[in-house]
């Protein structure tokens, strides 16, 4: 059936012109598609800067608060505790921030834009990988802030700038890998609230039953055994090693193994959910 209707002059001609111009392009490489999604994450920060509160004020609050609460009691003085604590609170804060990955993804999916992404010919994991890359930028921002706050409070990393940067890299690699858990949850759970709830349930014991705040020697033996195998402990050891100038190959190895395991389990799981989600 053909129907003609009156319309504003020019519109149809312009439409036809633009339709003729829509020639098919060669699909982008996996890297380019992922980076484009990362660019989207950066744009979102530009347009909604208040979402940076969790990587700016939150780290400052955590660092200042815990240093003064625990410092005197645990190490006799705030100054002594800082040397031990800054790498720990760095890991704690960044690991806590990773949980926003899941809730952010969940919101995205409910808005429908993921349908658009999934119907494009681009490499399918790029939407997930890209937003994780965007998150890595946020983690880096938070890490920098914490170390700066630490420096102001009197923290002096013996590993120097290079050591601090190596510590950052190890932490970011681990956080990127850990984020795949939240990606899985974000795709699996129905609402943003439940994602946040479950994430907290996992993160609190994971970060507190570790060597972030205290040396495990004073803990009951059972707890010490748990702390020893907690991946967070491994990361804290490596970051302390890097920033304190005593990093060993073994410490680096453990972080990479833990990261690789997380990705190997949760990335395929996420992709499966991403493909089949209702």
């Amino acid at each position: 059936m053909t129907t003609t209707v009156t319309e504003p002059p020019g519109t149809t001609e312009e439409l036809h012109e633009v339709l003729r111009g829509g020639v098919r392009t060669k699909r982008p490489s996996a890297l380019s598609a992922s980076l484009t999604h990362g660019w989207r994450a950066m744009l979102k920060i530009k347009h909604v800067p208040e979402q940076l509160l969790d990587v700016t004020l939150f780290p400052i609050m955590m660092t200042v608060m815990f240093t003064y609460i625990f410092g005197g009691a645990l190490d006799g003085s705030v100054g002594a505790y800082l040397q031990f604590f800054i790498p720990g609170i760095l890991v704690q804060t960044v690991v806590m921030i990773t949980m926003y990955t899941g809730s952010g993804l969940n919101t995205d999916i409910q808005k429908g834009i993921f349908d658009r992404f999934r119907s494009l010919p681009a490499w399918r994991p790029s939407a997930l990988v890209g937003s994780l890359l965007g998150d890595v930028v946020r983690y880096f921002g938070a890490s920098t802030i914490i170390v700066l706050v630490g420096l102001v409070m009197g923290y002096r990393p013996e590993g120097g700038l290079l050591g601090v940067l190596i510590g950052f890299v190890l932490l970011l690699v681990f956080s990127f890998s850990l984020s795949w858990i939240w990606t899985t949850l974000g795709l699996l759970l129905r609402s943003e609230k439940s994602v946040t709830g479950v994430s907290m349930l996992v993160l609190f014991p994971l970060t507190f039953v570790s060597n972030i705040f205290v040396r495990p020697e004073t803990m009951p033996e059972v707890l010490q055994a748990i702390v020893a195998v907690n991946p967070i402990t491994l990361v804290v050891d490596a970051v302390r090693g890097a920033m304190g100038g005593t990093l060993t190959a073994g410490q680096v190895g453990w972080v990479l193994i833990a990261s690789a395991l997380l990705v190997a389990i949760f990335a395929p799981l996420s992709m499966r959910l991403y493909r089949t989600r209702k």
């Binding site: 098919r24 699909r27 989207r40 744009l43 979102k44 347009h47 909604v48 808005k111 429908g112 834009i113 349908d115 658009r116 119907s119 494009l120 010919p121």
Partner: peptide, 17 residues
């Protein structure tokens, strides 16, 4: 996917952008 396009029931856009 190379040859189709989808406009979903709810705007499939990033509203912040």
């Amino acid at each position: 996917r190379e040859r189709i396009s989808l406009t979903g029931q709810y705007a499939s856009l990033d509203e912040d952008l």
